[in-house]
């Protein structure tokens, strides 16, 4: 095993994020089992469904690159979905809801960032706790019953297409490209890389460590806010359960995409393919009749196996 890992070809192959392999394998499975599903229209609909996840992942990969994590996205999505669908702001315009959603996301992310970056509290515990505070709050407001409908204009935009490709998918690709550029071109991107590699060294080379962590969390909150808007538009109704499983899926997709605590080898596109892998996985699982519990097990196993993969690799180096 050790000898195989020392082989340069093996090493190079190990550097490729597992998401690409998983994606290729799932595509092959689908191509053999259900070739008729592999057309642009059907695939477009499947991919469109996971756009909220894809956007949430953009935030997740940011915080994971600075060795943090954000599990509060579910709460943020639920809260925004509630404010839009419950009718507490009757007749408000679309722009108002968008601003409100982004503000909620930014505020929650900023709070997470302060706790993790300045108070240095365990990120898992902070963001889990923030998540359940928000979930409990929404359930309290709605007494556990689904709120009303989402204004129609959300669904109208969600259902548009540019050529054969649904608009939300294009939006996701564009957001990913923007983040990728942002990270590779700005000083902030360098800070993120430095903090992720070695917090102490970053501190002693003058990187504003706490500010960088606060900023990544704030941005993650912003992405959660955007994900909430897309998710709300996609289901078109209010719900007291929407988005609750997204944070853990986002962690899974990010790890699968080669971004593990501190290491950013997968960039933005690794996790992007991690999300696509999950889209295909759900299609494959549905076609083979695997239901909800099976999906939970698969999520857990994927995170575990990917983490073990990195654990073995880091030891062999």
């Amino acid at each position: 095993m050790a000898a195989a890992l020392a082989n340069p070809v093996m090493r190079r192959l190990l550097r490729v994020p597992p998401a690409y392999y998983v994606f290729a394998v799932l595509l092959a499975v689908l191509w053999v089992a259900r070739p008729n599903m592999l057309n642009l229209n059907i695939m477009g609909i499947f991919v469109r469904q996971i756009v909220p996840l894809g956007i949430l992942v953009l935030g997740q990969l940011l915080v994971m690159r600075v060795r943090s994590i954000d599990l509060s996205g579910g709460g943020v999505i639920l809260l925004i979905n509630y404010t839009i669908s419950s009718g507490v702001f009757p007749g408000a315009s679309m722009a108002f809801f968008i601003v409100l959603a982004l503000a909620i996301g930014l505020a929650v992310g900023f709070f997470n960032g302060l706790m993790v970056g300045v108070r240095r509290v365990s990120a898992v515990i902070v963001t889990l706790a923030v998540g359940i505070v928000l979930v409990g709050f929404v359930q309290y407001l709605s007494s556990g019953k689904p709120p009303g409908d989402v204004p129609g204009m959300f669904a109208d935009i969600y259902n548009t297409k540019l050529g054969p490709v649904p608009t939300p998918v294009i939006f996701w690709v564009a957001a990913s490209a923007a983040l990728s550029l942002f990270l590779s071109r700005t000083v902030f991107g360098r800070f993120v890389t430095s903090v992720g590699e070695n917090v102490q060294a970053a501190h002693f080379s003058g990187v504003p460590v706490a500010r960088t962590v606060v900023l990544t969390h704030t941005l993650a909150g912003l992405f959660a806010g955007i994900a909430a808007l897309v998710q709300t538009a996609s289901i078109a109704v209010g719900s007291v359960r929407v988005g609750l499983d997204l944070p853990i899926l986002a962690v899974a997709a990010t790890i699968l995409g080669g971004v593990v605590f501190g290491r950013g080898e997968g960039g933005v596109w690794g996790p992007f393919f991690g999300v696509l892998s999950f889209a295909l996985l759900f299609v494959v699982m549905t076609t083979f009749g695997v239901d909800e519990p099976g999906k939970l097990i698969a999520q857990g196993l994927i995170i575990l196996l990917a983490a073990i993969f990195y654990g073995i690799r880091s030891r062999s180096n």
């Binding site: 939970l296 196993l301 983490a307």
Partner: peptide, 16 residues
């Protein structure tokens, strides 16, 4: 593997 990641995935596997 970080304890949080290991036990978080175990949480989902067991729940499933």
């Amino acid at each position: 593997v970080h304890p949080i990641i290991a036990t978080l995935s175990m949480q989902y596997i067991l729940l499933g």
